[in-house]
Design a protein around this nucleic acid. Structure first.
Lengths: 230, 230
DNA sequence: TTGTATAAACAACACTTGTAGTGTATGCTA
DNA sequence: TAGCATACACTACAAGTGTTGTTTATACAA
């Protein structure tokens, strides 16, 4: 597995990858110890055994670094989960599960306050979901004329997915993810009925709930990149 | 009109309201001139003809100030628009219009980059929408049993509303808001059919589109507080 | 192996941040 | 109007930020 799934250039100077990985690891370590807001660039550089100026040669600020780190985690997890190219309903279900796992991971391993971090990860996660959904909707034609554009549909859906996962993560006593899926999936897929094959999913289906997979194993991807999630 | 719709204490020291308004006005002025990220606390204090220490006596940092400023704007606009206590569908339509107006206002008057600002305003807007929606759903009982909780429904809906408005604001060539409403409202209300009265809104209704109000006047509230939106 | 390109180290810079202590001005109330 | 409470001004401070210029170390190709 590539340690840097975001790399676009063919091959980059090994010093660069080394430095970036050191910075990401340093940030991940620190985020297990204290809140993101209280972490300074100086600390990150020191922990990475790098000069502070070197940090700025790679990232604009600590937010850029976190963004980069989160993005690679999200992308890896989503692609791994969706590589089987499942049906639209299953796709959304899997997305919901992945996002729940990510939010749970952050809450478990990163000391509060998490305000800035949440806002940042939210954007990265939604962007990835939106892109994947858009690709999917663009390939499958709707079986009846649609008022809304594909972009609108994908956007509303991706936000709805994240909103559901967020609501779940905010619960004081968290319900099983399978239950969340059973309750919320109809809400979300109601938007997409024109894109669903043949017979649209009924709003309440006991068989769906029974078929829900256990949410284990969600956090097992990309371990080298994000060891704090263990 | 109260200049501070967020105030909870009965009457506060006039010096406090004066100082806060000076700070808010200073921030609003500066945000018309340069990006929020590049604005410093020193600048805000200087523009407000206040000592920097006084700033910190009122707000934790510039983010808190912006949060406070945005919150009061959002709250004022939403309450003004929804004071007539309209039907659920109309309520969502009005919310969509207000959010579009807000996003348009920010984009027009605040120089990029707007990353931090967007994340902050997003949270404030969604919180307000969620609260209002939750109140509304809690009072009106669904006409058939629901899988999802009221909280889940309100959350997914509020995120969907914001997502739609956001998608609209990101378009390079922006369509009329009335058209957005016609296209997207069915997507959102599909989730809420159990809460809609009698006959659920048909997915495509030409009469709805014709009844769409012009989007003018959305930015005319709370002028004293936010003169940069003129 | 040598030469070249460039990544990283290092030091120094002006600036911002958040906080603390002290004095002054102002609003409220008796 | 006198007195109390407190909001604000002022100063100072240690720490962090973002940038620049110079030197050293490393990767890679001839």
């Amino acid at each position: 597995m590539l340690i840097n799934p975001l790399a676009t250039t063919e091959r980059e100077d090994p010093r660069i990858t080394r430095t970036r990985n050191l910075l990401i690891e340093a940030l991940n370590e620190l985020m297990g110890e204290k809140s993101f807001e209280s972490i300074t660039v100086s600390e990150i550089a020191e922990r990475a055994t790098l000069n502070r100026a070197t940090f700025y040669a790679h990232f604009q600020d600590k937010f850029s670094l976190l963004e980069y780190s989160i993005r690679s985690l999200v992308r890896t997890q989503l692609h791994a989960e969706l590589s089987a190219d499942p049906g639209l309903t299953e796709m959304i279900e899997k997305m919901l599960r992945v996002v729940c796992g990510l939010l749970e991971g952050y809450e478990k391993h990163c000391p509060a306050p998490r305000g800035q971090m949440q806002a940042l990860s939210e954007k990265q996660i939604k962007d990835e979901i939106y892109t994947l959904l858009l690709q999917r909707l663009e390939t499958s034609k709707p079986n009846r004329p649609q008022q809304a554009s594909v972009q609108q549909t994908a956007m509303v859906t991706s936000w709805a997915i994240y909103g559901a996962a967020f609501q779940w993560s905010q619960q004081s006593k968290r319900q099983p993810v399978a239950e969340l899926v059973r309750q919320v999936l109809p809400l979300i897929t109601a938007n997409l009925q024109a894109y669903l094959p043949i017979k649209p999913e009924p709003l309440a289906s006991p068989r769906r709930a029974a078929a829900g997979r256990a949410p284990s194993g969600l956090l097992s991807y990309n371990l080298r990149l994000h060891p704090q999630f263990l």
